[in-house]
Amino acid sequence: MTLNCAWLRQNLAYDCRPVRTVNGEPALEIGTPFSFADGTAIVFYLVEQGSHAIISDNGDTLTHLQSVGLDPFNRRRETAIRNILSPFGVALEASGEIRTLGPMGTSQHMVATYISSLLALANQERSWLGIPEPVNNFADEVEHYLRLWKPSEEAIRHPKVRGISRHEYTFDFSFGGELIDVVTPSHQATGGLMRKLGDVLSAPGERHRIRVVIDDRDDFERAETEKQIIGSMASAMLFSSLTKVANRQSVH
């Protein structure tokens, strides 16, 4: 198997261009739709070495953290970064490069888990900077796993739909023929969402298919309760369920 941009565009719809490493080796530079707290794009590189593939950020992530005032090289933060990356099978090298290595046949799964590791680190960056994690940051992760789950579908951000009241509502995505919203589990969020769903679903014309992804990473029981409520009006799924089906898809 020879790496090229075609399968990345087909399976994940990411930006991709051929480049050369500092050693002159052919590589792919992959731009994702995700970003760090200040809007810096998350980019990484895929290099073919014999029967294996290497994925690397070329040291860009730690350089970024340093540029926003977070010293990634002090012992405590460096340990934290290694602990964040480790569950994904991704390593922080002594050079500051974040990388992973695996057989060429697992490249698609490697890319998926590598992006997941950088998104986890981006979440931690927000915590270090004292920035509350917004729903939009969670939406980046949901989009990532939606693309893995159904790679042939296109994710369109922020589609607008009118309800029976003529009020215009914005959803997080249009994906696979569904309107998709992401929520954190709380009575307030669910209450507002249910009013929105009632208005949109009561509008004349074709009935919209709506899916809601609920963040269950911090409070599974609360998320499960809100899922039951939301499920009375729309397809509702926990974020953990989305990651499971997406990861099963990326392995095949």
Rank of each mutant, 00 (worst) to 15 (best):
V22W: 10
A94F: 11
P151F: 02
I42A: 02
G231H: 04
Y169A: 08
P185S: 09
W149M: 06
N136F: 06
P103C: 11
W149V: 00
L129Q: 13
V183Y: 02
L193V: 08
G50S: 04
I30M: 12
S127P: 00
S250Q: 06
A139F: 00
P151T: 01
R147E: 00
G105Y: 06
C5H: 05
F220G: 02
N247Q: 13
F88E: 01
K227Q: 12
A223M: 05
G69K: 03
G24T: 03
S186A: 07
R248S: 11
F34R: 13
A13L: 09
L197F: 07
R9S: 10
D215Y: 07
F44W: 03
D199M: 05
I229N: 06
D215E: 14
I180K: 02
A234W: 03
F73M: 05
Y14T: 11
I115P: 08
P26D: 15
D218H: 11
E97V: 15
H109R: 15
I98V: 12
L8D: 00
E133Q: 12
R248E: 15
Y145C: 03
F171Y: 12
L119G: 08
G198C: 09
L28A: 09
P185H: 03
L146N: 01
V111P: 05
R9W: 02
T106R: 15
F36N: 05
I214F: 00
E141Y: 04
R17S: 12
T32C: 04
L3M: 11
M110I: 11
A236Q: 01
V251K: 13
A120D: 15
T225L: 13
L121Q: 03
E25Y: 13
L148F: 01
T190F: 00
V251Q: 13
A13F: 06
M237N: 04
R157P: 00
R99V: 12
H52T: 15
E25S: 13
A120N: 03
D60G: 00
N247K: 13
A112K: 08
I131P: 09
K196L: 13
R222W: 04
P103H: 10
H109N: 14
M194P: 01
D38M: 07
E29L: 14
S152R: 05
G102N: 07
S241D: 15
D215K: 07
E133K: 09
T32D: 04
E168Y: 00
K244N: 11
L148S: 04
M194Q: 11
E143K: 06
R157F: 08
G59M: 01
C5M: 07
Y14I: 10
F239V: 01
F171R: 06
A13Y: 03
T243D: 04
A94N: 15
V22G: 13
D71N: 14
A91N: 14
W7N: 09
V22N: 10
D57M: 03
L201Q: 12
T243G: 03
V251H: 10
N4I: 00
R77S: 05
L46H: 02
I164A: 14
N83Q: 14
E153I: 00
Y169M: 08
V213K: 01
Q249K: 14
I42K: 02
L238A: 08
F36R: 02
A80G: 11
E97N: 15
A234H: 05
G39A: 06
S116A: 15
M104H: 08
A234Y: 03
D218R: 15
V183K: 14
W7C: 05
M110V: 06
I54H: 09
